[in-house]
Nucleic acid binder design. Structure first.
Lengths: 211, 211
DNA sequence: GCTTAAGCGGACCCTCGGTCCGTATAGTCG
DNA sequence: CGACTATACGGACCGAGGGTCCGCTTAAGC
């Protein structure tokens, strides 16, 4: 499988498409309002190029999501303290959830677009399996913790994009309050030190709380 | 607002449509595969009738869902022991979640259809607010329990149709094992009596575990 | 420069949600 | 029982948008 590298213009166009899609999705409030034709036009390419490069709409969204998620993934698999593998399980589990929540907050529209990408539910996408595997692996290392497989699913469900969107949008919950609530909830699930002080947790794990 | 009652044939057709939709959705494995034209044909009416009676696709799904959910709702608001209002909070919260899970298992395709009904996310549908209000109200009555609003959202997220579908479908988790896992997880969130014996919980609350 | 195959792009197709309006009939009143 | 009307019916029709196709363009190797 030689896997010859693509032509230069193809690579350039691919970038342009991802960039255009990101911009458009971020600006419209319903991701479904962004059509493939829109993206093609904004990227200055033809529709054919979109579909050749990404297969279909779902493929494009996935590619975009993966690209934006890459840094976080990196930080988790080989990064420093809070997220990295060296952190003790309880703390790391909390850090993972917080990082994922922050990511969804920072890329609200993109995450929404991904989840409503029709076809196959969020579950079954590569990145979900990765998150679930990572998180349940961490939970497993908690002494005396059982049912880590389901628990990981349930905890991940608590940060699903549409729920996050609902809470911060419709219900006007601030970013910091939401992070604190999640930390509180997750802490309860993990057991151990019941509450780590007050429930403010304004800066539990900086992680990807930037941008 | 006199609210004059509809003509007899209209009522009959409405029933036929709901029935046809239910059957079709239950039999195809992707709910999206069922088109409005399909439903109209199966019900023996014209498309116009569908849209006049339900507004749009989302409206039809909602109406169907509400109709099927009605018994459960009844059991919760004025039913007997496990689900009814007389049950002490901790037990009732567990019963509510189990009943909802069973409902989603029994009406897998319908629940999926509802969640992917496009337009507005699950959140914002009347029935969700009802579940959330009910559950968080119950949690509130647990002595020393905090963050019941978010906790209710998170617990409900753990029984979302697509997750349930993923676990029982792709992952071949049996109904009873799933119920036990959920009970275990929820029990941990609620605190109190850590584990009520083993984690089997084969028949925590019969409730709507029938059909 | 010449060759060639990877890449391009937009006209085109098809499905599907949703609308419209001429026709049919349930319900009512004389 | 016949006339009248509001209500409902239903399928032809429309527009949007995802996805395809194929003749043209152009990067890249010689």
């Amino acid at each position: 499988m030689p896997e010859r590298k693509p032509r230069a213009d193809a690579a350039r166009n691919r970038e342009a498409v991802l960039e255009a899609a990101d911009r458009l999705i971020a600006n419209r409030d319903r991701p479904a309002q962004v059509t493939m034709a829109d993206i093609a036009a904004a990227a200055g390419v033809g529709k054919g190029t979109l579909f050749r490069g990404f297969g279909d709409r779902t493929g494009l969204i996935h590619a975009l999501f993966e690209a934006r998620l890459e840094p976080v993934r990196q930080a988790v698999t080989e990064g420093p303290h809070p997220l990295g593998p060296a952190t003790p399980p309880r703390e790391r589990a909390l850090a993972l959830l917080d990082a994922l929540l922050c990511f969804k907050l920072d890329h609200r529209h993109l995450s929404l677009a991904l989840e409503e990408a029709g076809s196959d539910s969020p579950y079954g996408a590569a990145h979900y399996d990765w998150w679930h595997g990572t998180l349940s692996g961490v939970l497993e290392r908690l002494p005396g913790f059982t049912g880590s497989d389901f628990a990981a699913h349930a905890l991940l469900a608590a940060v699903r994009a549409d729920l996050v969107d609902h809470l911060t949008g419709r219900r006007n919950l601030s970013r910091e309050r939401l992070r604190a609530q999640l930390a509180d909830f997750a802490g309860r699930v993990l057991g151990g030190p019941a509450s780590d002080g007050t429930a403010d947790g304004a800066e539990p794990t900086s992680g990807t709380g930037n941008r």
